[in-house]
């Protein structure tokens, strides 16, 4: 038990520092694309600590207070149900008690908890952001579910560790074995990471940064911290599912950084979709590829 708790702390620390590092890179990279110098690599950490060092925070009652807590708890709980490494006792969290379907649903718990706080704050912009997020989620989940369902029925298991274990050599990586599923999932991946073209939820000018409009000080600090951790959880999940998992932290970082780089490039290159455009897009191209893959798979059986 102690070992698990220690591991959980380790996972939190790892994802936090990884996330801060990656997002530091993200900001510098974006700056270089704009031909700017950009902030220092650890700017995100500085920002985060500054937010916690604020002297006061706005509040709208107890539910508002609990929102960021639920959000962070949701993130960390989902993190603990993702195995980080394969063939290792380390950084497994509680993943043996859960599975992929559980994880997909766990990942929604936090945002919905936070949505309650957004609602109670009474900022209409925040609620608009939430609705946009939920609407966008329709588009993201459907192709994503299709692709992971392909994986799960392909490998005959719904457990993440077992899916990861099954990919023992490069040619067995699921991105090789199930290329269509991988491609479909990449669309959802970019969307779930919140990069453009799917970043309409927190549009700063239109809806006043959406769900985060009313949060400041320590609350914003928690939200910012969980955001980077959450992104890392998704990266690690994709590494586990499609990129053959990782046997140690360095391979994990290399693989997840490759995915992160992809996300960064897409985010830097594309303009923003409107909410309904995002859903319509996701329900067209990715879904068609996915359905095609399912049909091919079951006809060839």
């Amino acid at each position: 038990m102690l070992f698990t708790i220690f591991n959980s702390l380790l996972a939190v620390l790892l994802t936090y520092s990884m996330g801060m590092l990656y997002y530091g890179f993200y900001r510098i990279g974006n700056a270089r694309i704009h031909r700017r110098v950009g902030p220092p690599l650890w700017q995100n950490v500085i920002d985060n600590i500054k937010l916690f060092a604020k002297r006061e925070a706005p509040g709208h009652g107890i539910m508002f207070h609990l929102g960021p807590v639920i959000m962070t708890a949701g993130t960390i709980t989902s993190m603990l149900f993702v195995p980080f490494l394969k063939d290792s006792a380390w950084l497994q969290g509680f993943s043996s008690y859960g599975n992929l379907i559980l994880l997909i649903y766990l990942m929604v718990v936090g945002p919905l908890g936070n949505a309650l706080a957004v609602g109670v704050s009474g900022v209409p912009f925040g609620v608009m952001g939430v609705t946009r997020g939920l609407t966008r989620l329709i588009g993201l989940e459907v192709p994503f579910f299709l692709s992971v369902a392909l994986l799960m029925s392909g490998s005959g298991t719904i457990s993440i560790s077992e899916i990861m274990m099954a990919q023992d050599s490069f040619s067995n990586w699921n991105m090789m074995a199930h290329p269509a599923a991988f491609i479909v999932s990449l669309f959802s991946f970019v969307g779930m990471m919140g990069a453009s073209p799917f970043d309409v939820v927190g549009a700063p000018v239109e809806v006043y940064s959406g769900p985060q409009a009313e949060f400041g000080g320590k609350y914003l600090g928690f939200l910012a911290a969980q955001r980077v951790m959450f992104s890392m959880v998704k990266l690690i999940l994709w590494v586990d599912l499609f990129l053959g998992g990782a046997t140690n932290v360095f391979i994990l970082m290399a693989k997840s950084f490759a995915l992160f780089f992809f996300y960064f490039i897409v985010g830097a290159a594309f303009p923003r979709f409107k909410t309904e455009q995002a859903v319509d897009f996701m329900l067209k191209l990715p879904l068609i590829i996915g359905i095609g893959a399912v049909l091919v798979r079951f006809w060839s059986l």
Partner: peptide
Amino acid sequence: ASGSVSGFMV
């Protein structure tokens, strides 16, 4: 057959 979930743990 393909996996389990523990509500208690979750």
